[in-house]
């Protein structure tokens, strides 16, 4: 039985957005299949890989663990909202220059998480970065170059 859809008004990447969601649909499903923002990835659908990480009202969340209807009135930022009209954000540039991605499937989640960290703590230690990013799995890089990219971005943003 198709469920009755709920009308949701929200803000995504600074733009007002309205959509209809089934109550059972996760925010990730809504972002990808309804709003057509496929930058957030599904790796596990149970909150363990972090590939679907988005920023929701200033907190980073696994969008697979949030219901689409919970987006009502929220302010959501996805990977698609990180770059600006002026170009890539320093964290994006740092990931490229430090070869911090191989396959790139986990990259959107890492970028959203890292950006949130640097906005709260402009100069995090290696240990702090590792702790903060422990909810994002990467299977390609061994994290070395990701941690270095976050440190490089912090330096760039401070200058």
């Amino acid at each position: 039985m198709p469920a009755t859809k709920v009308h949701v008004t929200t803000t995504i990447n600074g733009e007002p957005v309205e959509f209809l969601a089934e109550p059972r649909q996760s925010l990730l499903e809504v972002l990808r299949d309804v709003v057509q923002l496929t930058g957030s990835k599904e790796g596990c659908n149970d909150g363990n890989c972090g590939a679907c990480t988005v920023n929701m009202d200033g907190r980073i969340v696994d969008s697979c663990l949030v219901l689409g209807v919970e987006a009502e009135g929220a302010d959501i930022q996805t990977v698609e909202g990180i770059a600006s009209a002026d170009g890539l954000h320093p964290i994006q540039q740092a990931f490229l220059e430090n070869a911090a991605l191989q396959c790139g499937i986990c990259t959107p989640g890492f970028l959203v998480s890292s950006k949130a960290l640097l906005e709260k703590e402009p100069n995090p230690s290696e240990e702090r970065i590792r702790m903060w990013l422990a909810g994002n799995l990467c299977r390609c890089t061994g994290y070395d170059k990701i941690v270095k990219a976050v440190m490089a971005a912090a330096k760039e943003m401070a200058s």
Binding site: T38, G39, E42, E80, L88, L96, E97, L101, L111
Partner: peptide, 17 residues
């Protein structure tokens, strides 16, 4: 820098799903 880099840090790269 890799040629597919910009697409992969902006969420534009098209994976199968």
């Amino acid at each position: 820098v890799r040629p597919d880099g910009a697409d992969k840090v902006t969420g534009r790269a098209q994976y199968g799903a």
